[in-house]
Computed example of a mutant assay.
Amino acid sequence: MSPKPSLLIATSLATALALAACGGKPDDAAPPPGQVTVATLKAEQVGLTRELPGRTSAFLVAEVRPQVSGIVGARLFTEGSVVSAGQPLYQIDDRSYRAQSNSARAQVARAEATANAARLSAKRIAELTKVQAVSVQDNENAIAALKQAEADLGAAKASLEAAEVTFGYARITSPIGGRIGKSSVTQGALVSVGQADPLATVQQLDPIYVDLTQSASELLQLRREMAGGRLQDNLQLPVTILLDDGTEFNHKGTLEFSEVSVDPTTGSYALRVKVENPDHVLMPGMYVRALVGSGVRSDAILVPMRGVARDAKGATTAMVVGKDGKVEVRPVVVSRALGDKWLVESGLKPGDKVIVEGLQKIQPGMPVQASEAGAGVAKKPTSPADAAAKQ
Rank of each mutant, 00 (worst) to 15 (best):
L231H: 00
L231C: 02
Q232W: 01
N234P: 05
Q236K: 12
Q236I: 04
Q236G: 01
P238C: 00
P238E: 00
V239H: 00
G246S: 03
E248T: 09
K252I: 04
G253H: 00
E256D: 15
F257Q: 14
F257W: 15
F257V: 14
E259W: 14
V262P: 11
P264E: 03
D279K: 13
H280D: 15
H280Q: 09
V288Q: 08
R289P: 07
A290I: 02
V296C: 03
S298A: 12
L302T: 04
L302W: 03
P304E: 06
V308H: 03
V308L: 14
V308W: 02
D311Q: 10
D311N: 13
T317V: 09
M319T: 12
V320G: 10
G322H: 13
G325V: 11
V327M: 05
V327T: 14
E328R: 10
V329C: 13
R330S: 14
V332T: 01
V332C: 10
V332Y: 07
V332H: 10
V333H: 10
V333E: 13
V334Y: 07
S335K: 10
A337G: 06
G339E: 01
G339S: 02
G339R: 06
D340N: 11
K341M: 11
W342E: 06
L343Q: 05
P350N: 05
P350T: 00
G351S: 11
K353R: 06
K353G: 03
I355E: 02
I355Y: 02
P364Q: 04
M366G: 13
P367L: 00
P367F: 08
V368I: 06
Q369V: 14
S371K: 02
S371G: 09
E372H: 04
E372G: 08
A373F: 12
